[in-house]
């Protein structure tokens, strides 16, 4: 898995590629957690490059949800496709966060 992040307007854009599973989840967790620790409350996670997500990966989003809820922050998703889309749908996580068809749309929505 690779995880890059940058700030765009008031949103922090986190792009994830590869497999998001038990092995890589802590890294993603840390990358997101660091931004929240810095006081960022508006996160956009782009999952366009993710080919596999396990329940450990999903759990990261639940953790993010809980942390952001505590600081009245938001988490927007974009780039869900294939297996990732399916997992998000089945688990009901797709309804936990606003999901956008593209990253641009997601950033736009935060603005």
């Amino acid at each position: 898995m690779e995880c890059t992040s940058h700030k765009e307007n008031k949103a922090v854009v986190i792009k994830v590629t590869g497999r998001l599973d038990a092995v890589t989840a802590p890294e993603f967790d840390k990358a997101c957690g660091n931004w929240i620790d810095q006081g960022e409350t508006c996160l956009v996670v782009d999952l366009a490059g993710v080919e596999y997500i396990s329940s450990a990966g999903l759990r990261c989003f639940l953790v993010l949800h809980k942390r952001l809820k505590a600081v009245a922050g938001t988490l927007d998703l974009s780039g869900l496709q294939g297996m990732v889309q399916e997992v998000f749908d089945i688990s009901g996580f797709a309804t936990l966060f606003p999901v956008h068809p593209s990253l641009e749309k997601a950033i736009e929505a935060t603005g």
Binding site: S91, G92, T95
Partner: peptide, 14 residues
């Protein structure tokens, strides 16, 4: 076909 439903342990009033 299953009804939609979120996993348990996320939102208490689901």
């Amino acid at each position: 076909p299953m009804p939609p439903g979120r996993v348990l342990g996320v939102l208490e009033d689901d």
